[in-house]
Amino acid sequence: MIELQNVTLAYQAEAAALYNINLTIDKGEFVFITGPSGAGKSSLLRLLYGALEPTTGQVLVDGHNVSHLKPSQVPLLRRSIGVVFQDFKLLQNRTVFENVAITLEVLGWGRADIGKKTMAILKKVGIEAKYGQFPQLLSGGEQQRVALARALVNDPKILLADEPTGNLDEANKDLILSVFNEANIRGTTVVVATHDKRLIEQSHKRLVTLNKGEFVEQAHIE
């Protein structure tokens, strides 16, 4: 599903953010990517959803070679990927419902189907009662659940999460992790970049560690 071959990513005139990374993630896997700040976790995720191109090497995601993707092909790649961020990236002037529905609008779904599907995913993440509210009235945990609903509403093949629990309390972390697990059980490949040790230990999943842009080790947390 995801394959990185000898990937190096260098921002202008700076040391490489990622250096010679080789990584394969199979369909349906759940992988944590960890490491200290500046290890290259976010850069790696950005490569996967086509926000960056590798300086050298190949990035293959769901049959797309991200290294040679034309701008017009990037939306097609992203329609099979859901992305969640630490800062949620919700549109403050749109309601919870509208923030989630946007994913389906982009795909050209009909109004009635959008309504059904959006309410169903909001129910799944436990926030359906607040569908008409604006994000600034929600707690951090609630906002992250909305972001998660937006990422999962179209049943993506891949879910990428960049420090998804960074701003959340323990109860909300557990809830978010359970939604990740549910999506993974349904067949979604999940890649979570985090340095939240408790989250990693609790999950018993494959762990990839980066440091200063280099691959350090991988393990399976039992």
């Binding site: 017009s72 990037v74 939306p75 992203r78 990236k89 403050q92 946007i102 994913t103 982009v106």
Partner: peptide, 15 residues
């Protein structure tokens, strides 16, 4: 932000 989010969820440039 709106442009970023729309691009993130796979909207084409035209959309």
């Amino acid at each position: 932000d709106e442009l970023d989010v729309m691009a993130l969820v796979g909207a084409t440039r035209f959309f």
